[in-house]
């Protein structure tokens, strides 16, 4: 089956003081209809830039997609005209962001901010849009939606605001929802509510979700498949069960080992030594090599490719060269 969204060998560059750097370097991923894809990695690994590349929302003056392709149901997003892109945004692909506190415009009413998207994409009257906006607020679990439509963002809590963001994003029933760390800024109980809400809406409407997070707990709870990113590249991709049961890449293993365990020993948490390399000082070989405990000679000299290490399981590591199965 043709995937809904296909990112192929995406390379996104930023102008920095050190010149042009590849922030996203050859990322490929697929999002199928109705699935929740987790994109995991630490800050600065390029997961947000990948999603903003899909939305074509990167600042044009300092960044560009240098090569690769992004297709939505076979249509090339990179070749879309600005007006076609606008019809896509908020309608076919919606996005919610990390910071609910600052993601809503402080000077407009909640209702107006929801209605704006509805009216733009659905071409309905103001009155109908308002009824619809109230309905959306109810759907995302906001009590007394009739009065919240006339309130301003500062009158709502962070969790409420993120619900409003979800209402805006889901209003036009998009095929894809990109959620960029949607719960990072919220406290734990609210996190669970927001995640449940996303899952519930996803099941009702069959929306595909690309869930960007650094929280493996959320991945385990929410996702069907997972893409692990490191320093602008995909290092491992598989279904969520295999990832937790049988992680391959040393980075993934390190991430899992650094999770606190409720049972068992109370020793100090493990961490991966070293730091993510700076964008303009990427190692010539494997990007994880300087921090890797399984490092071999070839890791420093040549770049590993993504290998099929098991069925539906790819990994970018020389350790599995011998195990590779033909795809």
């Amino acid at each position: 089956m043709e995937p809904l969204l296909k990112v192929d060998d995406l390379r996104t560059q930023f102008h920095t003081d050190a010149g042009l750097v590849n922030v996203v370097d050859g990322v490929s991923l697929e999002l199928k209809k109705g699935e929740i894809l987790g994109v995991v990695g630490e800050s600065g690994c390029g997961k947000s830039v990948t999603s903003l590349s899909v939305m074509q929302l990167l600042p044009k003056d300092i960044s560009k997609v240098a090569s690769g392709s992004i297709t939505l149901e076979g249509q090339d997003i990179l070749a879309m005209s600005p007006s076609r892109l606008r019809k896509m945004r908020g309608n076919q692909i919606s996005m919610i962001f990390q910071e609910p506190m600052t993601s809503l415009n402080p000077v407009f009413k909640i209702g107006d901010q929801i209605m704006e998207a509805i009216r733009f994409h659905m071409k309905i009257s103001k009155k109908e849009a308002k009824v619809y906006a109230i309905e959306m607020l109810k759907k995302v679990g906001i009590s007394r939606p009739e009065s919240v439509v006339d309130e301003y963002p500062h009158q709502l809590s962070g969790g409420m605001r993120q619900r409003v963001m979800i209402a805006i994003a889901m209003a036009c029933e998009p095929k894809i929802l990109i959620a960029d760390e949607p719960t990072t800024a919220l406290d734990v109980t609210i996190q669970a509510q927001i995640l449940n809400l996303m899952r519930q809406l996803q099941q009702e409407k069959g929306t595909s979700i690309m869930l960007i997070t650094h929280d493996l707990g959320i991945v385990a709870q929410m996702c069907d498949r997972v893409v692990v990113m490191y320093a602008g590249q995909v290092v491992e991709e598989t279904d969520v069960k295999s990832l937790f049961k049988n992680p391959k890449h040393p980075y993934t293993k390190g991430l899992l080992a650094s999770l606190p365990q409720l049972s068992g020993n109370q020793n100090k948490l493990k961490s991966i030594p070293g730091q993510v390399p700076a964008l303009d000082e990427m190692p010539t070989g494997c990007r994880f090599a300087p921090r890797c405990e399984f490092r071999m000679d070839e890791c420093d000299t040549s770049k590993p490719n993504l290998l099929n290490v098991a069925e539906n399981h790819t990994c970018r590591c020389y350790l599995y060269q011998k195990e590779e199965i033909p795809s």
Binding site: L57, P82, R86, R89, F97, N105, P106
Partner: peptide, 15 residues
Amino acid sequence: GQDYIRTARAKGMRE
């Protein structure tokens, strides 16, 4: 540079 401007763009608003 604010987040809500990105939100407006993500909604599909005209520049």
